[in-house]
Design a protein around this nucleic acid. Structure first.
Lengths: 211, 211
DNA sequence: CCGTAACTTGACCCGGTGGTCAACATGTCT
DNA sequence: AGACATGTTGACCACCGGGTCAAGTTACGG
């Protein structure tokens, strides 16, 4: 790879990281290129697709952020505290960082590293949930799919509220958590989605455009 | 108004109703015109804007659906049952009818009749909430803004899940409701949004395109 | 210092959106 | 039936998105 290509790739990565974190993963590629001071042809030349760019720019970041949160949760002596803290922390990431919000809300099948991060994250969530359920503090009918559903629905509003300077999303999380404490309140009227179902949902861009 | 113009307006209204309920309030106006077998110029001529069309087509429908739900809630002898039933019913509307989902999720300032419906609905929700709070069954720190926040975040995922043939959104509603029973579980870590704040949020299209 | 391979560029394609308007058609009233 | 108002049409505008590629530029090894 020639030196100038490397430079351009670096610039594009930087611009992409900026814009992704500022406005979400769906910013136009031409705008990223513009922001990087480079022709959009170069972007396509160097990365080929939005998903590849996302994979290079966001996967690591997501892995560390989500990994940290999960590790902290499992390190917490009280399983419920660990669980509740995890949920809150992830929601905070959603409110704070549009890119991470989209990572939880959408799915990009061609971003293989990111997909791996998501899978790991899901597995970690299962551990955290499991621990709290076994502990008897989390209601036994709550599943990781339910968490993902909640996170996916929560992301856009949390982001918007935070952008508007409000913390109100914390209230929604609070209500939810209070509903999750054992013993189960009301029996649930439906089956959870399977991970495949929810995955499919997010690939389609469920929460997006609401279209 | 000439007879043919009336005919065309009726066709356009019908097409708009169809497409709105099938795909949400953001379907392209040209597509509605196409679907009505009429030039898009005619649509602009007769209605002028998307919001005017929405106002004519959706406002009544929304008024009756939401009004029915609210009336049923207030008629329910048990305030908590009334509240829980109301929330569930509205969520069901969101899952079932993309147009109504959007009504709860977005705001169209130029659709004056629809805006009135929204305001009435908000007021009705306040009554329902108030009654359940006074009854002691609903936690006292829950506000109508919190409900609106929940509904707005819930709509897109509920719609997508329902479209995928899943009832899983009912679980989310169930968790939430269990978190709302008095006595308040955990003290809330933030102020609710004011109606103005949340309105502004929805006008901006917060939940949309997650953009 | 020069030739070549690597790279960049921006015009261009496609399809989509909202929106306007001159030219044309048609209903309607006398 | 005729004439005018009322409506309709679809080409056209500007903008956006993703994506391609011939032509021009630039880095780099010999």
């Amino acid at each position: 790879m020639r030196a100038d290509a490397q430079r351009n790739a670096a610039r594009l990565r930087a611009a992409a990281a900026d814009l992704f974190q500022e406005r979400g993963l769906q910013v136009s590629l031409k705008e990223i290129a513009r922001h990087a001071g480079v022709s959009h042809g170069t972007l396509y030349n160097l990365f080929g697709s939005r998903e590849a760019l996302i994979d290079e720019v966001i996967a690591d970041l997501a892995a560390t952020r989500l990994g940290d949160a999960a590790r902290a949760a499992l390190a917490c002596p009280d399983p419920w505290q660990g669980f509740a803290g995890y949920v809150t922390e992830v929601c905070e990431l959603q409110a704070t960082d549009p890119a991470l919000g989209d990572v939880l809300t959408r799915r990009f099948p061609d971003a293989s590293r990111l997909m791996a991060v998501c899978d790991n994250s899901f597995a970690a969530a299962e551990s955290i949930i499991d621990r709290a359920r076994r502990d008897g503090s989390l209601r036994p009918d709550f599943t990781a799919s339910d968490l993902l559903f909640f996170l996916a629905s929560h992301a856009p509003l949390a982001r918007a509220a935070a952008a508007a300077g409000s913390d109100a999303w914390r209230r929604a999380v609070g209500f939810m958590l209070d509903g999750l404490r054992a013993p189960a309140g009301t029996p649930l009227p439906a089956e959870p989605m399977t991970p495949q179902q929810i995955n499919h949902l997010l690939v389609e861009g469920a929460a997006a455009v609401s279209a």
